[in-house]
C-alpha cells in the first residue's frame, strides 16, 4: 500500500486553516451586525472549533489514504468518517490525467486522475504525488490499461 507524499498534509491543513478563518470572519461579521449583542468570544470559539476539527480531519485523511497499483487494477482506500475502498480495473480505464493545481505547484506536488466510463466515481483522483511520481503513475497506468485491452469499454 503506497502512502501519499507527507507534504500533502501541508496543503490540506492550510486549506482547513483558510476555511476556519473564513468561517471565523463570517461569524465575526455576524456578531458585529447582529441586532442582539453576542459575546465577542463566540466567533473566536466557532473559528477555533472549525480549525481544530478541520486540521484533525486533514491529518486523519492523510493517515487514511492509500493506493496500490495491483496486477490488474488500481486499488484506493481513503476516507475519515466514511471509509471508501475503490477497485478500478485497468480494463476500464478510459484515460489518465496528471494535473497540477496552483496550490499543488506551490508545495511541489501533483495528482493523477483516472477516468472510467462508470456513472459514479467516474473519475478517481490520487492527490499528493510528486510531479515525477504522478507522471510515472500516469504512464504506468496508461501502459497497464493498454495491455489489458478493454475492447468494449461500454
Amino acid at each position: 500500500m503506497n502512502r501519499l507524499h507527507p507534504r500533502i498534509r501541508l496543503l490540506w491543513v492550510a486549506r482547513a486553516v483558510v476555511f476556519a478563518l473564513v468561517v471565523g470572519g463570517v461569524a465575526t461579521a455576524a456578531t458585529l451586525f447582529a441586532p442582539v449583542s453576542i459575546p465577542s468570544y463566540v466567533p473566536v470559539a466557532v473559528g477555533g472549533v472549525f480549525l481544530v476539527v478541520g486540521v484533525a480531519v486533514a491529518l486523519l485523511r492523510y493517515r487514511a489514504w492509500g493506493y496500490e497499483v495491483r496486477d490488474d487494477s488500481l486499488y484506493l482506500q481513503r476516507g475519515v468518517l466514511t471509509k471508501v475502498n475503490t477497485v478500478v480495473p485497468f480494463v476500464r480505464v478510459q484515460h489518465v490525467d496528471s494535473t497540477r493545481g496552483p496550490l499543488e505547484r506551490l508545495v511541489g506536488l501533483a495528482s493523477t486522475v483516472v477516468y472510467t466510463a462508470g456513472s459514479r466515481g467516474a473519475d478517481v483522483s490520487i492527490p499528493g504525488l510528486t510531479p515525477e511520481g504522478a507522471e510515472d503513475l500516469q504512464d504506468r497506468l496508461k501502459r497497464l490499461a493498454i495491455a489489458s485491452e478493454g475492447d468494449d469499454a461500454v
Binding site: G79, T82, K83, V84, N85, V87, R92, T116, A117, G118
Partner: peptide, 16 residues
C-alpha cells in the same frame, strides 16, 4: 460481470 466498471466499498461511521 463484464459490465462492471469500478467496484466501490464504503463504510460510514455508523456502519463501522
Amino acid at each position: 460481470y463484464y459490465r462492471v466498471q469500478t467496484v466501490i466499498e464504503r463504510r460510514t461511521v455508523f456502519q463501522r
